[in-house]
């Protein structure tokens, strides 16, 4: 566990001594502000629903760019060899890296807290809904980080890993929209279930449904497991 903690701290340190974390935070906050203003103007109500929905999609594109360095870069620098010959179990390495992405996301979401506060000055937002919306976003972050980690383990070229992450995640966004094109009810259902929007939507109206929580947890675990397999197989090739 202490190894996972060391990895966790190292990842965050590397992000914060380089421009990555700041560019990432800046880009995300800019988008959040844009969505906030647009949402309020369009609906004219003290709700953050539009912002949260747009943010979840933005995360899908941004998170792979954050996680792309994880394994690709370690491989390129030769530090992967170091980690695999230091007494660090692979699960601790994965956990540390994944938790670091999640922690950066949590900070990000915390900073967007300024928008609900602004809303509170002029209106009367529903704090319960806002809290569940944040939970939904955090679950998205976990899922996307895990997928990004996976593609990062496939390539030692960070750019390829980042774009690969977006490509892997895209179907999980589009599936819901594509559902109405399918002329077969079970197929439609399946596509809707595949889309993360289906599962994040209930959070934005204040509902915490364990089946949706489970979907995100499963998604994260599935990709962490794939990452684990992929990293293991790397050594055999």
């Amino acid at each position: 566990m202490s190894a996972a903690w060391a990895i966790f701290k190292k990842e965050l340190r590397v992000w914060f001594v380089s421009p990555i974390a700041y560019v990432f935070l800046g880009a995300f906050l800019f988008l959040a502000g844009l969505f906030f203003v647009m949402g309020i103007q369009q609906n004219g109500e003290a709700s953050l629903r539009a912002m949260f929905s747009n943010l979840s999609v933005s995360l899908l594109f941004l998170l792979p760019l954050l996680t792309m360095k994880h394994f690709a870069e370690e491989e390129r620098l030769g530090t992967f060899e170091f980690l695999m010959t230091a007494p660090v179990p692979l699960w601790a390495l994965l956990l540390g890296k994944w938790a670091a992405s999640l922690a950066l996301c949590a900070l990000l979401l915390l900073l967007t807290g300024v928008f609900p506060l602004l809303l509170a000055i002029y209106g009367d937002p529903d704090w319960g809904v806002i809290a569940t919306s944040y939970l939904g976003l955090l679950l998205c972050c976990g899922a996307f980080s895990s997928a990004g980690l996976f593609t990062s383990s496939l390539s030692d070229e960070p750019v390829a890993a980042g774009l690969g992450g977006v490509l892997v995640l895209l179907p999980f966004w589009i599936a819901g929209g594509a559902a109405h094109l399918v002329d077969w009810e079970p197929g439609r259902q399946a596509l809707r279930q595949l889309s993360f929007l289906t599962h994040v939507e209930p959070f934005s109206v204040g509902v915490i449904d364990s089946s949706h929580v489970a979907w995100f947890v499963l998604f994260s675990f599935a990709f962490l497991f794939l990452t684990w397999r992929s990293v293991e197989s790397r050594r055999w090739r």
């Binding site: 340190r13 590397v14 001594v17 620098l77 030769g78 530090t79 992967f80």
Partner: peptide
């Protein structure tokens, strides 16, 4: 203790 051919360093640290 292992020193690989290329020292395993993180350039940012």
């Amino acid at each position: 203790g292992y020193l690989p051919e290329r020292p395993p360093l993180y350039p940012e640290l």
